[in-house]
Design a binder for these strands. Structure first.
Lengths: 126, 126
DNA sequence: GAGATATGTCAGGAATCTTTGACAGGTGCC
DNA sequence: GGCACCTGTCAAAGATTCCTGACATATCTC
């Protein structure tokens, strides 16, 4: 059982995890699944939200590696998709961002040389 | 130098911090300010983004307590607003969410008793 | 005063994210 | 077959967030 301290996330991974967690519904979902694993329909009733919506949020959380889902077939033949939280651990500090940013691919200032974004100083402009 | 491990954020604070950090631009801003404090216009040029936009992002980060800004008057009389990162530290784990969710005020399932959100089972419906 | 740099704020449009109401396909039980 | 549950996916509408191009103010230097 070696602790798996999540090596060091890349900028993109960190971004995906943070944007996934930065939503009240998804925070509640993670909290609920931390208490106990559950399947979609039951979870939807538990936290009072529509199933299609919950389904989408779960998909997003799973893509970010925060929850894990597995389709299981109950004894009575019904298949249910159980979700449980992944044992993640992110230590958010300014330094982590300083490092992670180097492996951040998104939001490049809309590639294109002459599509000024910042206001250049007259000096630099010459 | 007692470490100030950020006691334990409330659900709302955590949500605000995470939604603020879950954005590529803001991640870059935090990273840049971690290297060194800087004032708005210069920072805008450094990370190549419009000043009005940067201004908005900084305001958001400041509201989340992640960066601190102070208006200073340089020797030559020009006033500049310097920003620096706040020494934050959040240990994101499933358990943290389980606890934080209890102090989460937002997104209550649109208060109102009979505005069904989830699909009730026929049993519960009776 | 004109030019350069700083700060701050807005309105309006563009781009995204959220949410809901169908549909469709399965299995078990009476 | 009809009913109760489960799963998954869409399209369209609603909300939010993001971004840009003005404006307005202030100080210092030439």
């Amino acid at each position: 059982m070696a602790e798996v301290p999540t090596p060091e996330p890349t900028g993109d991974e960190l971004l995906k995890a943070l944007s996934a967690l930065g939503n009240p519904h998804r925070m509640r979902i993670v909290a609920a699944l931390t208490e106990r694993r559950n399947y979609v329909s039951a979870l939807a009733r538990e936290i009072g939200m529509g199933r299609p919506l919950l389904h989408m949020h779960l998909k997003l959380l799973e893509a970010a590696g925060l929850v894990i889902g597995s389709l299981e077939v109950a004894e009575d033949g019904k298949s249910m998709k159980y979700f449980e939280v992944a044992p993640f651990l992110y230590e958010l500090t300014p330094q982590l961002f300083a490092r992670a940013v180097r492996t951040l691919s998104e939001t490049r200032p809309r590639e294109s040389a002459d599509h000024k974004t910042a206001e250049p100083t007259k000096e630099e402009a010459k």
